[in-house]
């Protein structure tokens, strides 16, 4: 099952490292990363495979909320179907 993780916030050293570590710990595989920094705002979109993770979406989101709070970033995980249904016919 694929999902998108979006990370938005102020840029600093180590964001990708810390988030990747948290994902690996939860057996989430990163398939693709798109990342830019515009006017000091860090924006990253990751496509991930969560098939091997044993946690339901609600728990993954709570976990990412806590991580986001620590790193002072907004982190959200959403199933890919919401984007496919909205942007692809």
């Amino acid at each position: 099952m694929k999902a998108f993780i979006t990370v938005i916030g102020r840029d600093r050293i180590g964001i990708i490292a810390e988030i990747s570590a948290a994902l690996a710990e939860n057996r989430i595989n990163i398939l693709d990363i798109n990342q830019t920094v515009m006017a000091e705002t860090f924006t990253m979109i990751m496509m991930v495979d969560i098939s091997l993770s044993e946690k339901p979406f609600s728990e993954l989101q709570t976990l990412l909320d806590e991580l986001g709070e620590q790193l002072k970033l907004s982190i959200q995980i959403q199933h890919e179907d919401i984007f496919n249904s909205m942007h692809r016919i």
Partner: peptide
Amino acid sequence: MLLPQEILETQR
């Protein structure tokens, strides 16, 4: 493949 701007548009 979805474009980054499409994902960000949905989120906005």
